[in-house]
Design a protein around this nucleic acid. Structure first.
Length: 103
DNA sequence: AGCGTGACAATTA
DNA sequence: ATAATTGCCACGC
């Protein structure tokens, strides 16, 4: 059903549990820009602060870092420790098992 | 109906 | 390590 990638993106972002984060590329490796725009265009409130860039940093502001730290996300200096905070897609996708384009 | 924009990523220099 | 360039999909005008 559904949807378009935008809907899936929102669903994934909302599915991110506290203490974990995901990168835009993990949500949509084909169009990470889309993720950003969708989150900006969506009327739903999604925890963007749980979505960080591929290098673990964020575009919003380091203030969000404090917020992530409060959630229990392992931070590595100025970046998020993706090695430990990145949420495996097997879990999120485990619910729907979606496939994005063939690669 | 078309063009530009956007919370990015990956590659090359 | 940083800087610049290209590709991507959906939305807004």
């Amino acid at each position: 059903m559904d949807d378009t990638r935008a809907a899936r993106i929102l669903a994934l972002v909302r599915a991110i549990p506290s203490g974990f984060v995901q990168t835009y590329g993990d949500i949509d490796p084909r169009a990470p820009r889309l993720v950003g725009h969708v989150l900006a265009a969506t009327k739903l409130k999604v925890p963007w602060h749980r979505v960080v860039r591929a290098d673990g940093s964020m575009t919003q502001g380091h203030v969000q870092l404090e917020r992530l730290r409060k959630e229990g996300v392992p931070l590595r200096g100025k970046r998020v420790d993706l090695s430990a905070a990145r949420l495996p897609r097997d879990i999120t996708l485990g619910m729907t098992r979606k496939r994005k384009t063939t690669r």
